[in-house]
Simulated scan of single mutants.
Amino acid sequence: MPFDPSARPLTAHEARVLATLMEKARTVPDSYPLSLNALVTGCNQKSSRDPVMTLSEAEAQEALDELKRLTLAFETSGNRTTRWEHNFQRGLGVPEQSAVLLGLLMLRGPQTAGELRINAERWYRFADISSVEAFLDELQERSPEKGGPLVVQLPRAPGAREQRWAHLLCGPVDVSALPSATPAASPAPHALQARVEALEAQVAALQATVQRLCSEQGIAPGAAAMSPPGQD
């Protein structure tokens, strides 16, 4: 039975550790499998991460132990240092292309199909956006016998042209907690009225100032506005 996130969702730390192993296996194969120290460095990168995290070695090790128990990662013996590998595709029973998309969603947060295609360049080269969408649709329609859906298409964000996708490996997505997931609240009617009244007061004050200055100069307000430049 493949790993079922609906029965036992991954924690945020576990997802970050797992996705980092997946990333480094594809982008820096000469350094893979990873030592604990290298893994922590990868998890805490400032680039290509959303959100940015600051995992300690103890937190990363705890996540690795749980991933090992879930058969999503395993340790290999190095010369003197224990190294770690992911077992994502076998653990979930998904093809390479689907694994790439899920790994990117775990590392970078919700993305559109177009963004996923661009961000996947170093992992896997998709032919076009349609191929990305086909694998996303397959992941969304995954049967309960295989562990259920692994991604969800989010509601279109205000001002966005395309809908974003999110993974479900950490459980259901709280759409309200996502950046730009909901439109900015409109000002309350009484607040809007207060702003209008404040602006009207400012305009009235400026008019009074203009009137006073014109009186001191002995000119009519309208005449000052119509006088050609350089003439009194």
Results as ranks from 00 to 15, higher is better:
P5S: 05
V173W: 06
R83E: 09
T82H: 08
Q231W: 09
P155N: 10
P149F: 10
A194P: 00
S6L: 05
E85D: 12
Q207K: 10
L178I: 00
G114M: 05
A204Q: 13
M106C: 14
A99Y: 01
Q97A: 15
Q193G: 00
A60W: 01
L21H: 03
W84M: 05
T41L: 14
W123R: 09
R83N: 01
V152D: 01
H190G: 02
R108E: 13
E57A: 15
G42K: 02
N79H: 13
E14S: 04
A113Y: 03
L92Y: 09
W165A: 05
T209E: 15
W123H: 15
M106I: 04
L67V: 02
S143W: 07
R49I: 04
S48C: 03
A185H: 06
T209S: 13
T27W: 04
R26I: 00
E57N: 11
E162M: 07
V210C: 10
W84T: 09
A194S: 10
R26S: 13
D232P: 10
R125S: 03
L199F: 09
V100T: 14
A160N: 08
A225L: 13
L21E: 03
V210T: 07
G114W: 05
G103M: 01
R195V: 12
S215A: 15
R156E: 10
P158R: 08
Q211K: 11
R156N: 06
M53D: 08
P228G: 08
E62R: 14
T20A: 10
E141A: 14
L101H: 09
S186V: 06
V152N: 02
R26W: 03
G42C: 06
E66P: 00
L39G: 04
D232S: 13
E57F: 00
A224S: 12
L55K: 01
E62M: 08
A113L: 07
L92Q: 05
A194E: 11
A63D: 02
V52T: 11
Y124D: 04
P229G: 08
L105G: 07
I219C: 14
V132T: 04
G42Y: 04
G159V: 06
Q140D: 11
I219Q: 13
L139I: 05
S77L: 09
A177D: 10
R212N: 08
A177E: 09
V151T: 14
R156W: 03
I129P: 00
L102R: 05
D65A: 12
L154H: 03
A7R: 15
L101N: 08
A134N: 12
V132I: 09
E162Q: 15
L104T: 02
A25D: 11
G171I: 01
E75S: 15
A113T: 02
L206A: 13
E62H: 08
L34K: 00
G42H: 05
R80K: 12
L213I: 06
A157P: 04
C170Y: 01
G148H: 06
G91V: 07
F126T: 00
G218I: 05
Q153W: 00
A223N: 08
T82Q: 13
R16S: 06
G42L: 07
C170K: 10
E115D: 13
E85F: 02
H167I: 02
R164E: 15
Q111C: 13
M22P: 01
N79V: 08
S215I: 01
L168I: 10
